[in-house]
Design a protein around this nucleic acid. Structure first.
Length: 621
DNA sequence: GAGTTTGAAACT
DNA sequence: CAGTTTCAAACTC
């Protein structure tokens, strides 16, 4: 039962597996080091998990069943499942150095300080795990295949796919052994012929680099993505059927899965991972099942599968939103900021993307954590505030640089400054802000500002304060994309400041002004985004608590005194001014941005200041 | 532990 | 390249 064939002579079976093979290989071991060496050349396999963590370039990932142990003195074959090969993400199963390691070493689970330990898994989740693998909870051996028809010479076989001989497997008619090396080699060649990359790691480091590298979804690091992507249809990519899920990575744009729930921000996924203990697996699995059945159940295939295909989902904001959940998830993976804002930007005040509940009866529907944090008007307001800042910054800087000129030119700029401040103040005091926001964007705001200026000081366009290219672009973009209708004549655009040439009376001095102006605006914008992030995090925590079933505790705390932990309490305090104390934190972005607006309102520039109180003034948006 | 489900791999 | 079949792991009962 333990072994049908193939592992009899090589690799050494269990009794032999404790033999240490030194780096010089072949010392007194009844299996030839040469064979091990041969393994090296036939495929290019993933590195040991530990090594893989640190070296992750696709090119360098030679499939290499024999790797140096951490001691650096021994060569041991490693056994990784196909999805394990890649690295980065420790698979759910404990990874074991293979047979040739001394038991003492083998008994020590490889650790990966830099990565999250494999998620807890109940024994039930590994029903086929050999008895020898985990008896006392200590992984001792590689995973064993159970191939029956492939002779372990197809990629179906994990051993073969991993580039190692079968050892102690439960396979039948195994040819993945030294005795059948010719057949094996032939199979390898055939496999490579079909797919030259067949033995290359399936998981590659993300091209998104830093973003992905720092990606932390609360449930584990998500560092890479599947090269080919999965094609899951029914598992929601929340089961180990899914290679991405199994590798503990998020589905990516490479995937062609349906009803994917393995994306950042997926509540279903978070529900799976937020359980930190193995004994939560039952619940977690229930959550996964519920998520899957909920999505697939009545609605899942009620619509043509094609509609659920990623192809349609990839139609960026196509008019037909068949699967907002998945699509949103993909978007999130693609771009944090974009995904965070998109729900709100998605225009129609109607159902936002995150409001998947309106689309399908899925029991678990994904709603962006930021869904109710950001409203379209909030963005408008933000843009408006930024424009105000921009204007104020430019004006102030221009004032400084052109103090002498302004003396000659009279009070124009001063009136501009005062008028702008007055305008901001009036906007707030008169309560017309909403009205303004309802009908304008930054561009519109800019228009208003410009109009105001014109009306107040009578200055012509050429005298209007300069605006940075960035600001102008922002304003123009806004007006182009969202409020073009409001612009009825070219003069409007000119009024928006799009005519940069007319705004640049000061030559090089303006460059500095622009830089400073942009810095201020961007810094402020960063501030807002940071607040948004904080809000999202807090809300995520709350959601996590709900998932864990302890929500009521936290919620109670939140209702009463804020948050339970010092950390969250601090977070709460940090933006206390802008966030409501609603039990279920749904702080409006308007509130969140209010401090910005207030700053702009009360003290436009002195406080435009360095939003980063620590002195970091460089916008890092 | 048997049977079912699932999705990758292989095949057509 | 798409559709189908084969296969073995994951999963359920």
């Amino acid at each position: 039962m333990e072994k049908s064939e193939g592992g009899d002579s090589f690799p050494p079976n269990k009794g032999q597996s404790e033999v240490v093979v030194s780096s010089t290989v072949g010392t007194g071991v009844d299996f030839p080091a040469k064979k091990l060496a041969r393994q090296l050349d036939f495929t290019v396999f993933g590195q040991s998990p530990a090594a893989a963590v640190t070296a992750v370039t696709e090119q360098s990932q030679k499939i290499q069943p024999l790797v140096m142990t951490t001691s650096g003195t021994q060569i041991v074959p490693v056994k990784l499942t196909p999805v394990q090969r890649p690295q980065l993400q420790p698979p759910p199963q404990p990874q074991q150095h293979m047979v040739l390691m001394p038991m003492k070493q083998a008994a020590v689970p490889p650790t990966h300080p830099s990565i999250r330990p494999p998620k807890p898994e109940s024994p039930r989740a590994r029903p086929r795990q050999s008895a020898s693998e985990v008896k006392d909870g200590t992984p001792k051996k590689q995973k064993q295949c159970n191939c029956k028809h492939s002779r372990c010479l197809k990629l179906y076989c994990e051993c073969f796919a991993s580039g190692v001989y079968c050892d102690g497997c439960n396979c039948n008619n195994c040819h993945n052994n030294v005795e059948n090396e010719p057949a094996r080699r032939e199979a390898v060649e055939a496999t490579l012929e079909r797919n030259p990359h067949a033995f290359r790691p399936k998981i590659a480091s993300s091209p998104h680099g830093a973003r992905d590298n720092k990606e932390e979804t609360g449930d584990g690091l998500v560092l890479a993505k599947h090269n080919k992507g999965c094609h899951c249809k029914k598992s929601g990519c929340l089961k180990k059927y899914c290679e991405c899920f199994q590798a503990n990575i998020l589905c990516s744009e490479n995937c062609k899965c349906m009803d994917c729930k393995n994306f950042e921000g997926s509540e279903e996924r978070q529900a799976l991972f937020h359980g930190d203990h193995a004994n939560n697996m039952a619940y977690l699995q229930q959550a996964a099942n519920a998520a899957i059945t909920g999505a697939i159940g009545s609605s899942g295939y009620g619509s043509p599968p094609v509609n659920r295909k990623r192809k349609s989902q990839e139609l960026f904001f196509g008019s037909t939103i068949k699967d907002p959940v998945h699509r949103h998830g993909q978007l999130q993976q693609g771009n944090h900021i974009k995904s965070s804002v998109l729900p709100s930007l998605s225009s129609s005040p109607g159902p936002c993307v995150g409001n998947a509940a309106t689309v399908g009866p899925s029991k678990f529907t994904y709603r962006s954590l930021l869904e109710d944090l950001i409203q379209p008007q909030d963005l408008k307001e933000l843009c408006s505030v930024l424009v105000v800042y921009s204007g104020e910054a430019a004006k102030m800087l221009a004032d400084e640089k052109d103090a002498s000129k302004k003396q000659a030119e009279g009070q124009t700029e001063a009136s501009l400054a005062s008028s702008t401040q007055e305008w901001v103040q009036n906007q707030k005091d008169s309560g017309s802000e909403k009205d303004m926001l309802d009908c304008c964007s930054s561009g519109d705001q800019g228009e208003k500002i410009s109009m105001e200026e014109s009306s107040l000081d009578g200055a012509d366009v050429s005298k209007r304060r300069p605006m940075s290219p960035g600001t102008l672009a922002l304003m123009c973009d806004e007006s182009d994309t969202m409020f073009a209708a409001a612009i009825t004549s070219p003069n409007d655009l000119a009024a928006l400041g799009c005519n940069t040439s007319s705004q640049l009376p000061h030559g090089q001095g303006m460059t500095e002004t622009y830089a400073e102006q942009e810095r201020i605006v961007l810094t402020k914008f960063r501030d807002c985004l940071n607040r948004l992030v904080t809000l999202g995090e807090i809300k995520e925590k709350k959601c996590s608590s709900m998932v864990r079933g302890i929500d009521f505790i936290d919620q109670k705390d939140m209702i009463g005194n804020g948050f339970t932990t010092t950390e969250t309490r601090n977070q709460h305090d940090s933006f206390n001014n802008g966030v409501s104390n609603s039990p279920l934190p749904q702080p409006r972005t308007t509130q969140m941005f209010s401090s910005v607006a207030t700053t702009a309102n009360n003290n436009p520039l002195p406080k435009v200041h360095r939003p980063d109180e620590n002195g970091d003034v460089k916008p890092t948006i």
